[in-house]
Design a protein around this nucleic acid. Sequence first.
DNA 1: AGATGTCTGTTATTTATAGTACAGTACGTG
DNA 2: CACGTACTGTACTATAAATAACAGACATCT
Lengths: 289, 289
Amino acid sequence: MTGLPHTTVAEMIRRRLDQLTPTERKAALILLGNYPVPGLQTVAQFAKQAGVSNPTILRLIAKLGFGAYADFQQRLRDELEARLRSPLTKGVLAADAKDLVEIPAFAKYWESVSSAMAASMHLIRPSEFDGAVALLADETRPVTILGGRLTSSLALQAYLHLRELRSNVTFIDSQTATWAEHLLGVTPSNTYLLFDIRRYQEDVVRMGQEAAARGAKIILFTDEWLSPLSAVAEHVFALRIAVNSNWDSFAPISVLIEAMIARLSALNWPKVKARMEELEVIRRKLDAG
Amino acid sequence: MTGLPHTTVAEMIRRRLDQLTPTERKAALILLGNYPVPGLQTVAQFAKQAGVSNPTILRLIAKLGFGAYADFQQRLRDELEARLRSPLTKGVLAADAKDLVEIPAFAKYWESVSSAMAASMHLIRPSEFDGAVALLADETRPVTILGGRLTSSLALQAYLHLRELRSNVTFIDSQTATWAEHLLGVTPSNTYLLFDIRRYQEDVVRMGQEAAARGAKIILFTDEWLSPLSAVAEHVFALRIAVNSNWDSFAPISVLIEAMIARLSALNWPKVKARMEELEVIRRKLDAG
DNA sequence: AGATGTCTGTTATTTATAGTACAGTACGTG
DNA sequence: CACGTACTGTACTATAAATAACAGACATCT
């Protein structure tokens, strides 16, 4: 996370290539050829791959200015991380380092969120995603959406978008008093979209369990520590939401919702388009009147 | 070098993620988050980065089927080499996408959101960010939050979090009938937090203009095409929300909200902490009663 | 041709790393 | 409430690694 050196190891080598002895150069070229993988091996492995002896490698990295082989490897890993980092933060850090400007608070947070998002993406199984989308696409299945104290903004996001795409979508608000009535009509043909992250909210959990008991299929959005609801849910999406803050980030979950909406919308676009146009007409009428 | 195994370590982890113990999962997620760099470190470094103990790492890689940590690292290096050989266009995504027969829908969307977020980050001026945070931090200024038809989920997110941090926060819901009354009490000591993206919603715009006319300071979250409200707003955050979908992504705006919350929360943590603890006590009392 | 300096590999030493055994903790179960 | 089980970290050991010291080979210059 700290500021990266301006020059890469590869550059350092290229600059001093003619100052190296023949065997050292041999090793250096092997490194550049498959950069930076050979340098991530042990000295012995690197040496063997280059066809030189152990100390030659050590002398090479010493000439490059490293005090120890471990330092050299650390530098390679830092470079690699910066290079593989999601496009999100790639440019930012370099630019800020160049300007010698202190990284603003939001940029640090941004970076943290981006890595949570990258990690989260790997936690989604494509089949699970498709399964959930299929459930949501089925207009014969009413969809009910519910979130916790904080996550209800996510629930609302899902609701506001989903209702543009299809009918039979219900949002359950925070007024727990009304929840019992919602449960009354639950049958196995219901789909529940639930949001529950740490610290898991008892009433939401109970609500989900009851819905599941009545046969409803549940799609759950939770964190890596898994809401108790994961036991009864048909589809569980456990994302990485811990970030560099006292608060969890909703971004990964939010993006997953959007991805589902995008997919849903793309899958039956003609139908969705027709619906939205109709909606538009009605809205205009209401506004005019 | 012989043919590489078809499954990557990342894939293996994803498949068995639910069979891992909590701490093992923690380590696994760290690896996936900066894949594959953490795994190229020593066991001790990896463990420290993940905040787990040495043996946990070893148990993890044992569960993945590796006989020794060295084997595990060798596999990571092999993957990395194969991956870097082909033109590295899109970092992690591209490489992992190759593993799968075809890039899953959500991965494409993810990529698109990532670049929108990266672009958005550059559109934020640090001074503007600090200014807005300062406004929100000022408890003598009541904060009113309002969003449009779809963006009200963002408004709700801001509201739910902000009210944890400070008092005097109001959320205006979509019932336009009540809006006039909200305007009645507006003075120059009011702060309005508004969300308005294309296609800009007339009623929200009018509401903001009227509040501005009465002296309220306005913080506006909008898109790069700028809501008409930007003319009257004190602080304007114009982010890039267009993505590879029929719908705009809320993620950049959402992350900006979170960044502000995080900043606010960090700036006066003792006070915030005290408030949250008090809230917790009250909530428990209500639940019990 | 002999001597000197440079380069390189082999062997020995030391450091730190991976791996193991064990014990404490928390959690669920009878 | 006691028991058993699963999980996790601490302390230790064996091992493999990096590094240092040494010696031979080669080339170059006097």
